[in-house]
Nucleic acid binder design. Sequence first.
DNA 1: ATATCGATTATCT
DNA 2: GATAATCGATATG
Length: 197
Amino acid sequence: MNEEQHAIGREFFARHPRVVARALLGKLLIRRLPSGHVLSGRIVETEAYLGADDAAAHAAAGKTQRNAVLFGPPGHAYVYFTYGMHYCLNVSCEPEGRAGCVLFRALDRLAGIDIMAKNRKITLESRSTARLRSLTSGPARLCQAFAITRTNDNGKEMTSPASDLVLMDDGYRTKKIRAATRIGITKSPDLPLRFYV
DNA sequence: ATATCGATTATCT
DNA sequence: GATAATCGATATG
């Protein structure tokens, strides 16, 4: 554990999702498993989802049971289930009472690669780059690799070093960040709210 | 490498 | 009853 490494505080997330999505690139997602194993990955792709002014956002039509976390305090996990089989992870943004979040779309795997492969049910006998990349490239893939589910993780505090799902800053700075339109949405497709390294 | 398609169910209209 | 912030398989170039 690097001594420069620290959990990112709640204030970081109490901002506009567009700002947070960009700022999260290069940060670490850490997962502590009940077994004691630790998984980690560096964030390389995110998307921002806003509130009432963003038709593609789950929060667009107001608060429901499903999206309640988005209206709560910043820095908490919003995990939703979609397409009948996939989970996706977001972190809540904006001050409490206002909706917004950042979707995690891809990570560069760091620690715990063999466990990620097991969680993904992927064989790594040939450690091809494509095979390794497929562990955590995609919002539902990274959730499966990190064993993130709605029942276990929705609403979880992600700013406490003691949490088993934490965001950390280790001082790494990304080189070039690019912006583009978001993927897989039909409603507000033209907003440049996707960020990647 | 790119395109198309089926899977499978919680959530909302 | 329709849709979905996706993925993996299959087909084709």
